[in-house]
């Protein structure tokens, strides 16, 4: 059970991280005009953070220790 519990805790932490990243006030920081590499700041942030979160979830869910 040890491994499963660690995995569950990591994933819960990632869920909380996601709630933080995709919420007020952090979201408001990126709600600006302007672009990053031609992409509006807000979209760049949302998709970038989303992709990073998925990568972390893959790491947490697949990691065997």
């Amino acid at each position: 059970m040890g491994e499963f519990e660690t995995r569950g805790q990591r994933l819960i932490a990632l869920c909380l991280l996601g709630c933080l990243l995709f919420n007020y006030p952090i979201l408001a920081i990126f709600n600006l005009p302007g672009t990053v590499l031609g992409i509006p700041v807000l979209y760049a942030w949302v998709f970038g953070a989303w992709a990073a979160l998925i990568a972390l979830m893959a790491w947490a869910a697949e990691r065997k220790d």
């Binding site: 569950g8 994933l11 819960i12 990632l14 869920c15 709630c19 995709f22 869910a61």
Partner: peptide
Amino acid sequence: PIYIGPTLMIALWWV
């Protein structure tokens, strides 16, 4: 949000 929500939820699926 309709797709970010499930992303957050599925992280809790392990539990």
